[in-house]
Amino acid sequence: MFKSIVKKTVLMLVVMMFIALAFGCANGQADKELILATTTSTYDSGLLDFLIPEFEKETGYNVSILAKGTGASLELGKRGDSDVLLVHAKSRELKLVEEGYFVDRVDVMYNDFVILGGPEDPAKISGMKDVAEAFKKIANSKAEFASRGDNSGTNMKELAIWEKAGIKPQGDWYLSLGQGMGDTLRVANEKGAYTLADRGTYLAMKDKINLQVLVEGDPILFNQYGIMAVNPDKHEGINYDGAKALIDFMVSEKGQKMIGDYKKFGEQLFVPNAK
Protein backbone atom coordinates (compact mmCIF):
# COMPACT_ATOMS: atom_id res chain seq x y z
CA MET A 1 0.00 0.00 0.00
CA PHE A 2 2.68 2.44 1.03
CA LYS A 3 4.80 1.59 -2.00
CA SER A 4 1.86 2.31 -4.28
CA ILE A 5 1.51 5.76 -2.74
CA VAL A 6 5.18 6.38 -3.40
CA LYS A 7 4.77 5.17 -6.97
CA LYS A 8 1.76 7.43 -7.50
CA THR A 9 3.63 10.35 -6.02
CA VAL A 10 6.62 9.88 -8.27
CA LEU A 11 4.34 9.46 -11.28
CA MET A 12 2.52 12.68 -10.42
CA LEU A 13 5.83 14.46 -10.06
CA VAL A 14 6.93 13.31 -13.51
CA VAL A 15 3.63 14.52 -14.99
CA MET A 16 4.09 17.86 -13.22
CA MET A 17 7.56 18.18 -14.67
CA PHE A 18 6.21 17.66 -18.17
CA ILE A 19 3.53 20.29 -17.60
CA ALA A 20 6.24 22.60 -16.32
CA LEU A 21 8.34 21.96 -19.41
CA ALA A 22 5.33 22.83 -21.53
CA PHE A 23 5.07 26.06 -19.54
CA GLY A 24 8.70 26.80 -20.24
CA CYS A 25 8.29 26.19 -23.96
CA ALA A 26 5.14 28.30 -24.07
CA ASN A 27 7.27 31.23 -22.97
CA GLY A 28 8.98 30.73 -26.29
CA GLN A 29 11.28 33.24 -27.95
CA ALA A 30 13.07 35.19 -25.27
CA ASP A 31 13.65 38.22 -27.51
CA LYS A 32 9.91 38.73 -27.85
CA GLU A 33 9.42 38.78 -24.09
CA LEU A 34 9.26 42.24 -22.58
CA ILE A 35 8.93 43.12 -18.90
CA LEU A 36 7.27 46.42 -18.05
CA ALA A 37 7.50 47.63 -14.46
CA THR A 38 4.92 50.27 -13.73
CA THR A 39 2.83 51.91 -11.06
CA THR A 40 -0.38 50.59 -9.60
CA SER A 41 -2.17 53.69 -10.97
CA THR A 42 -1.60 52.84 -14.64
CA TYR A 43 -2.41 49.17 -14.11
CA ASP A 44 -5.31 49.26 -11.67
CA SER A 45 -7.06 51.99 -13.70
CA GLY A 46 -7.21 49.59 -16.65
CA LEU A 47 -5.22 51.85 -19.01
CA LEU A 48 -2.56 49.21 -19.73
CA ASP A 49 -5.15 46.51 -20.34
CA PHE A 50 -6.40 48.86 -23.05
CA LEU A 51 -3.03 49.84 -24.57
CA ILE A 52 -0.80 46.80 -24.27
CA PRO A 53 -2.86 44.27 -26.29
CA GLU A 54 -2.78 46.73 -29.20
CA PHE A 55 1.01 47.08 -28.85
CA GLU A 56 1.40 43.30 -28.73
CA LYS A 57 -0.75 42.86 -31.81
CA GLU A 58 1.21 45.47 -33.71
CA THR A 59 4.73 44.34 -32.81
CA GLY A 60 4.48 40.69 -31.78
CA TYR A 61 6.04 41.37 -28.38
CA ASN A 62 4.62 39.66 -25.32
CA VAL A 63 4.50 42.09 -22.42
CA SER A 64 4.61 41.02 -18.77
CA ILE A 65 3.34 43.80 -16.55
CA LEU A 66 4.62 44.21 -12.99
CA ALA A 67 2.37 46.63 -11.10
CA LYS A 68 4.47 47.93 -8.20
CA GLY A 69 4.85 51.45 -6.86
CA THR A 70 7.15 53.90 -8.60
CA GLY A 71 9.82 53.42 -5.90
CA ALA A 72 9.82 49.62 -6.29
CA SER A 73 9.68 49.84 -10.09
CA LEU A 74 12.73 52.10 -10.21
CA GLU A 75 14.57 49.70 -7.93
CA LEU A 76 13.66 46.70 -10.14
CA GLY A 77 14.87 48.61 -13.19
CA LYS A 78 18.16 49.51 -11.53
CA ARG A 79 18.71 45.82 -10.72
CA GLY A 80 17.95 44.81 -14.31
CA ASP A 81 14.81 42.88 -13.38
CA SER A 82 12.66 44.70 -15.93
CA ASP A 83 13.24 46.07 -19.41
CA VAL A 84 11.16 49.21 -19.48
CA LEU A 85 9.48 51.46 -16.90
CA LEU A 86 6.35 53.61 -16.95
CA VAL A 87 6.46 55.67 -13.75
CA HIS A 88 5.70 59.08 -12.30
CA ALA A 89 8.51 60.73 -10.36
CA LYS A 90 10.10 62.92 -13.00
CA SER A 91 12.89 64.50 -10.99
CA ARG A 92 13.99 61.11 -9.67
CA GLU A 93 13.72 59.55 -13.11
CA LEU A 94 15.95 62.25 -14.61
CA LYS A 95 18.48 61.77 -11.84
CA LEU A 96 18.66 58.02 -12.50
CA VAL A 97 19.01 58.64 -16.23
CA GLU A 98 21.91 60.93 -15.43
CA GLU A 99 23.45 58.22 -13.26
CA GLY A 100 23.29 55.88 -16.24
CA TYR A 101 20.69 53.37 -15.05
CA PHE A 102 18.09 54.28 -17.65
CA VAL A 103 18.04 55.64 -21.20
CA ASP A 104 15.58 57.19 -23.67
CA ARG A 105 13.28 58.78 -21.09
CA VAL A 106 10.32 60.68 -22.57
CA ASP A 107 7.16 62.25 -21.19
CA VAL A 108 4.07 60.23 -22.07
CA MET A 109 1.04 61.65 -20.36
CA TYR A 110 -0.14 63.44 -17.24
CA ASN A 111 -3.05 63.72 -14.95
CA ASP A 112 -3.23 65.37 -11.58
CA PHE A 113 -3.38 64.53 -7.93
CA VAL A 114 -6.42 65.43 -5.85
CA ILE A 115 -7.01 65.69 -2.12
CA LEU A 116 -9.84 63.37 -1.14
CA GLY A 117 -11.83 63.22 2.05
CA GLY A 118 -15.11 62.03 3.50
CA PRO A 119 -18.25 64.15 3.15
CA GLU A 120 -17.90 65.34 6.80
CA ASP A 121 -14.66 67.21 5.99
CA PRO A 122 -13.68 67.81 9.66
CA ALA A 123 -10.78 70.16 8.76
CA LYS A 124 -13.03 72.20 6.43
CA ILE A 125 -10.68 72.21 3.45
CA SER A 126 -13.28 71.74 0.71
CA GLY A 127 -12.80 74.18 -2.16
CA MET A 128 -9.41 75.47 -1.00
CA LYS A 129 -7.01 76.42 -3.80
CA ASP A 130 -3.68 76.10 -2.00
CA VAL A 131 -2.85 72.47 -1.16
CA ALA A 132 -0.11 73.34 1.34
CA GLU A 133 -2.60 75.51 3.28
CA ALA A 134 -5.12 72.67 3.20
CA PHE A 135 -2.49 70.27 4.56
CA LYS A 136 -1.76 72.78 7.38
CA LYS A 137 -5.45 72.82 8.31
CA ILE A 138 -5.58 69.02 8.33
CA ALA A 139 -2.53 68.84 10.59
CA ASN A 140 -3.83 71.55 12.92
CA SER A 141 -7.22 69.91 13.33
CA LYS A 142 -5.51 66.51 13.75
CA ALA A 143 -8.01 65.00 11.30
CA GLU A 144 -6.89 61.59 10.09
CA PHE A 145 -4.75 61.52 6.96
CA ALA A 146 -3.99 58.25 5.12
CA SER A 147 -0.55 58.24 3.51
CA ARG A 148 0.69 55.65 1.01
CA GLY A 149 3.92 55.51 3.00
CA ASP A 150 5.47 53.26 0.33
CA ASN A 151 8.01 55.46 -1.43
CA SER A 152 5.75 55.59 -4.50
CA GLY A 153 5.43 58.57 -6.82
CA THR A 154 2.25 59.61 -5.01
CA ASN A 155 3.95 59.24 -1.65
CA MET A 156 6.88 61.38 -2.78
CA LYS A 157 4.47 64.06 -4.01
CA GLU A 158 2.64 64.00 -0.67
CA LEU A 159 5.89 64.41 1.26
CA ALA A 160 6.87 67.31 -0.99
CA ILE A 161 3.58 69.04 -0.11
CA TRP A 162 4.10 68.50 3.63
CA GLU A 163 7.54 69.98 3.23
CA LYS A 164 6.11 73.01 1.45
CA ALA A 165 3.58 73.39 4.26
CA GLY A 166 6.46 73.31 6.73
CA ILE A 167 4.99 70.39 8.63
CA LYS A 168 6.57 67.12 9.68
CA PRO A 169 3.58 64.78 9.55
CA GLN A 170 3.51 62.57 12.60
CA GLY A 171 1.14 61.57 15.36
CA ASP A 172 -1.97 59.44 15.79
CA TRP A 173 -3.78 61.27 13.01
CA TYR A 174 -1.15 60.48 10.36
CA LEU A 175 -1.60 56.93 9.06
CA SER A 176 1.42 55.74 7.09
CA LEU A 177 -0.01 52.62 5.44
CA GLY A 178 2.75 51.25 3.24
CA GLN A 179 0.20 50.12 0.67
CA GLY A 180 -0.81 50.74 -2.94
CA MET A 181 -3.21 53.45 -4.09
CA GLY A 182 -6.29 51.23 -4.17
CA ASP A 183 -5.62 49.89 -0.67
CA THR A 184 -4.99 53.39 0.64
CA LEU A 185 -8.27 54.64 -0.82
CA ARG A 186 -10.04 51.69 0.78
CA VAL A 187 -8.60 52.50 4.22
CA ALA A 188 -9.25 56.23 3.86
CA ASN A 189 -12.79 55.41 2.80
CA GLU A 190 -13.45 53.21 5.84
CA LYS A 191 -11.98 55.79 8.21
CA GLY A 192 -13.28 58.93 6.49
CA ALA A 193 -9.65 60.05 6.39
CA TYR A 194 -8.07 62.56 4.01
CA THR A 195 -5.66 61.28 1.41
CA LEU A 196 -3.73 62.30 -1.69
CA ALA A 197 -4.56 60.25 -4.78
CA ASP A 198 -3.88 60.36 -8.48
CA ARG A 199 -7.06 61.25 -10.30
CA GLY A 200 -6.88 58.14 -12.49
CA THR A 201 -7.13 55.65 -9.64
CA TYR A 202 -9.73 57.81 -7.89
CA LEU A 203 -11.96 57.89 -10.97
CA ALA A 204 -11.49 54.16 -11.52
CA MET A 205 -12.67 53.44 -7.96
CA LYS A 206 -15.18 56.28 -7.63
CA ASP A 207 -18.26 54.05 -7.62
CA LYS A 208 -16.86 51.96 -4.76
CA ILE A 209 -15.96 54.70 -2.28
CA ASN A 210 -17.58 57.67 -0.54
CA LEU A 211 -14.54 59.92 -0.72
CA GLN A 212 -14.92 63.22 -2.58
CA VAL A 213 -12.51 65.56 -4.30
CA LEU A 214 -12.01 68.43 -1.83
CA VAL A 215 -8.98 70.24 -3.21
CA GLU A 216 -7.75 70.27 -6.82
CA GLY A 217 -6.12 72.50 -9.40
CA ASP A 218 -3.04 73.66 -7.47
CA PRO A 219 -0.05 73.53 -9.89
CA ILE A 220 1.91 71.43 -7.37
CA LEU A 221 -0.61 68.63 -8.01
CA PHE A 222 0.56 68.13 -11.61
CA ASN A 223 1.42 64.45 -12.18
CA GLN A 224 3.74 63.66 -15.08
CA TYR A 225 4.20 60.07 -16.29
CA GLY A 226 7.32 59.12 -18.20
CA ILE A 227 8.58 55.98 -19.93
CA MET A 228 12.22 54.89 -20.12
CA ALA A 229 14.31 51.86 -20.99
CA VAL A 230 16.73 50.09 -18.67
CA ASN A 231 20.27 50.80 -19.86
CA PRO A 232 21.23 47.60 -21.76
CA ASP A 233 24.91 48.20 -21.00
CA LYS A 234 24.27 47.78 -17.27
CA HIS A 235 22.92 44.23 -17.33
CA GLU A 236 22.95 41.09 -19.47
CA GLY A 237 19.81 40.10 -21.31
CA ILE A 238 17.89 43.36 -21.25
CA ASN A 239 15.37 43.48 -24.09
CA TYR A 240 16.31 46.96 -25.26
CA ASP A 241 14.72 46.61 -28.72
CA GLY A 242 11.42 45.69 -27.11
CA ALA A 243 11.70 48.56 -24.65
CA LYS A 244 12.40 50.98 -27.49
CA ALA A 245 9.43 49.60 -29.45
CA LEU A 246 7.12 50.19 -26.47
CA ILE A 247 8.47 53.71 -25.93
CA ASP A 248 7.91 54.47 -29.62
CA PHE A 249 4.40 53.07 -29.43
CA MET A 250 3.48 55.11 -26.36
CA VAL A 251 4.58 58.39 -27.93
CA SER A 252 3.29 57.54 -31.42
CA GLU A 253 0.23 59.32 -32.74
CA LYS A 254 -1.79 56.16 -32.28
CA GLY A 255 -0.58 55.46 -28.74
CA GLN A 256 -1.17 59.05 -27.69
CA LYS A 257 -4.65 59.02 -29.19
CA MET A 258 -5.51 55.78 -27.36
CA ILE A 259 -4.34 57.27 -24.04
CA GLY A 260 -6.55 60.31 -24.63
CA ASP A 261 -9.47 58.10 -25.62
CA TYR A 262 -9.32 55.87 -22.55
CA LYS A 263 -12.28 56.65 -20.35
CA LYS A 264 -13.73 55.24 -17.20
CA PHE A 265 -17.28 56.21 -16.18
CA GLY A 266 -17.22 58.70 -19.08
CA GLU A 267 -14.18 60.55 -17.72
CA GLN A 268 -10.76 60.80 -19.28
CA LEU A 269 -8.09 59.51 -16.85
CA PHE A 270 -4.84 60.58 -18.53
CA VAL A 271 -3.92 63.43 -20.89
CA PRO A 272 -1.28 62.50 -23.50
CA ASN A 273 1.59 65.02 -23.71
CA ALA A 274 4.49 63.42 -25.57
CA LYS A 275 6.50 65.92 -27.57
Binding site: A20, F23, G24, N27, A30, I35, S64, L66, R79, G80, D81, H235, E236, G237, I238
Partner: peptide
Protein backbone atom coordinates in the same frame (compact mmCIF):
# COMPACT_ATOMS: atom_id res chain seq x y z
CA UNK B 1 17.32 35.18 -8.98
CA UNK B 2 17.52 38.90 -9.69
CA UNK B 3 19.66 39.95 -12.67
CA UNK B 4 21.93 41.59 -10.08
CA UNK B 5 21.99 38.40 -7.99
CA UNK B 6 24.16 35.27 -8.21
CA UNK B 7 21.62 33.22 -10.22
CA UNK B 8 20.37 36.04 -12.43
CA UNK B 9 21.82 34.34 -15.49
CA UNK B 10 19.15 31.61 -15.24
CA UNK B 11 16.42 34.19 -15.97
CA UNK B 12 13.98 32.46 -13.66
CA UNK B 13 12.59 35.56 -11.97
CA UNK B 14 8.93 36.31 -12.81
CA UNK B 15 8.29 32.67 -13.83
CA UNK B 16 6.33 29.85 -12.15
CA UNK B 17 9.70 28.21 -11.45
CA UNK B 18 10.73 31.04 -9.17
CA UNK B 19 7.44 30.66 -7.35
CA UNK B 20 8.00 26.92 -6.93
Amino acid sequence: LSKSGPLGILELLWTPWAMI
